[in-house]
Design a protein around this nucleic acid. Sequence first.
DNA 1: AATGAATGAGTGTTCATTCAT
DNA 2: TATGAATGAACACTCATTCAT
Lengths: 207, 207, 207, 207
Amino acid sequence: MSTEERVRHAAVRLFAEKGFHGTGIRELAQEAGISSASLYHYMGTKEDLLVAIMRECLDRLLRGARQAVDGVADPRRRLASLVSLHVLVHARQPAETRVVDNEVPALSESARKEVVGLRDQYEQLWADAIDDGLRHRVFTVAEPTVTRLALLEMCSGVARWYSPRGPLDLDRLAGHYACLALRMLGSADDECPQAVETARMVVSRVW
Amino acid sequence: MSTEERVRHAAVRLFAEKGFHGTGIRELAQEAGISSASLYHYMGTKEDLLVAIMRECLDRLLRGARQAVDGVADPRRRLASLVSLHVLVHARQPAETRVVDNEVPALSESARKEVVGLRDQYEQLWADAIDDGLRHRVFTVAEPTVTRLALLEMCSGVARWYSPRGPLDLDRLAGHYACLALRMLGSADDECPQAVETARMVVSRVW
Amino acid sequence: MSTEERVRHAAVRLFAEKGFHGTGIRELAQEAGISSASLYHYMGTKEDLLVAIMRECLDRLLRGARQAVDGVADPRRRLASLVSLHVLVHARQPAETRVVDNEVPALSESARKEVVGLRDQYEQLWADAIDDGLRHRVFTVAEPTVTRLALLEMCSGVARWYSPRGPLDLDRLAGHYACLALRMLGSADDECPQAVETARMVVSRVW
Amino acid sequence: MSTEERVRHAAVRLFAEKGFHGTGIRELAQEAGISSASLYHYMGTKEDLLVAIMRECLDRLLRGARQAVDGVADPRRRLASLVSLHVLVHARQPAETRVVDNEVPALSESARKEVVGLRDQYEQLWADAIDDGLRHRVFTVAEPTVTRLALLEMCSGVARWYSPRGPLDLDRLAGHYACLALRMLGSADDECPQAVETARMVVSRVW
DNA sequence: AATGAATGAGTGTTCATTCAT
DNA sequence: TATGAATGAACACTCATTCAT
């Protein structure tokens, strides 16, 4: 593993564990196995490093999500795939995703704009699937916007508690969340296994 | 409003907005309208202040939750009331609840133990309702533990986005979440209005 | 002497001796007899301190120069008084004046504008006296602008070498420079003693 | 232009513009178009580079000054030639000369001794001319030492303001300063054109 | 009750310099 | 000849906290 990768990994781990402001540059350097001065060969400012982490994670998520929904007509399958992918990624990369989810307020104005922009594009894919499902009457739910937010928070929460050492494997986890999501939307939950399959394929392609 | 309250409010607002480590003592003092030295008449250390905020919030939530479920036999109504209460509180007090949800890693070992202990007691009430519902076959869900976590994350997420200036009033919000929850558990969602009523009563009693 | 004054004196001494960039904040603190953290009770940034020193020195010089020329009709006496005052001040306060003369490039854009503005006002008084003298034919010199600059550099140079422990007292020094200046301008040099008298009075009033 | 020359030029430019302590090694490298590590193939330490610049400039000036006065009997012509040469050099090479004039305090003890020694030899030529002129009664001035310092500061000041884009060409500038100098010394100022001629010849030989 | 003054330890970042390649 | 990589020390500045008044 290159030094640059070690720096990145150290930052992801520490920012996730102690927060951006709770992580010192010297701590970061020690975790990466170099001096704090050397750190600056591999990054700009501490914030630049944070932005790079967020951008890459969101970029991948957005790219993956697009692959998961592109060309899929059935909104139930689209939504289920989005949920599965989101859960898979949050369970496999809890550190990265927690940084993305928690440290937005630590960003400066301009960086925040970029990051929020990416996140908005991503969430739009969820909104489209939900709207489509409502229009085609395969979803029945009172508040689509609130429900979308509820879904996203529910799925992102996985990064806060999932442990690979627990009894649940990733596929069953993702499948279960897909079921919960379809239930919330008032739909039958028989699309889940195929959605998990799609999500797994996307993950193997993008990560 | 007493000075002590002003300090508490300032801390809640800033810890929620910028995080514990992102908030300076001088910033806190300025927001409270006193000098940073005077701050120390109203608190111990900065961490003591954080702990006090978390403890009070969790205490109230736990007390409220107990009032909401005590003596209620139907697990659907218990669960729906817990969800409604949780959502109401997170929508009405987003700053306090975000501090509780986000700043646990900023605590020292011993303080963390206490706070996590309170949270565990609180979550146990949810677990009990779910288990009870499964036992009585009013709930049908594959992974009760995962589902409980999904529910909690979904509901806590409200604090991250709800705005009182939006189109949804608190009661409808709480009711909608109760419906979503019952759906997730594979139950009919006709207990929601009463659950909201219960939650409102509890809130008015405890806060 | 108050702590604030000690800080100011330390800064003047060190900035003059080693330059702004050559003076560390810790060195400054040590010279002032406080910790480097305490320094920040008595100043904004290091640059703010520099600007304050420059502003005060230039303000005084400008005020003094105006008092020295106001209401004096004879341009020879005006010019001689300006020279005497300039020399007196640079000999008595070599540290302050060297900071003003040497550290302008260390200033940020906006601060530099202010400082250069003050200096320009000051130099204008010299330009006016010279122009007036040429118009009234009491001065005879080919290049008035160049000559003004030559005069100013010559007089400012005093701060770089004059020592109060040398054989020349301040009055004779100032008088000699006034003579040199009048000679450069092609004028008789009999106004000097009165000019020194004027300068001494101004100095005692403004400093 | 060789890399070594590019380094030298970059250093001269930056040391003059921002001072020795205000110039970073990376900045220097960038200005020279190489990496900061490569810099060390062409210099010793940063201070060595400064010393080399100063030494060369002072060496040339001293050599030039000797050529300008050697074998010239008339002290007026000697003094006028020294002034002309000094002004020409300071106007043509403002960066080098400002470094020499401003950065002496940045030198370590031993380097400072060497540089000050060169400067003293140079100034001695001025002192000799003045003393000679006084002895032969072609100069009339009260304080020869002070006057020498005033002359030197006046002439060195040229480097701080002269611009080749201004209305004055170098010869007229040098001639004007020679006149000012002779006036200061109480002498007729008719030696100037020849002095400028001498200075120009010396410059073309030494630089 | 309130705060100006004070500080040791720490912040993120840059410094001049070295060295293996 | 040239440079990426590396670093200990220093940079200007802020931290949470204490204490005399």
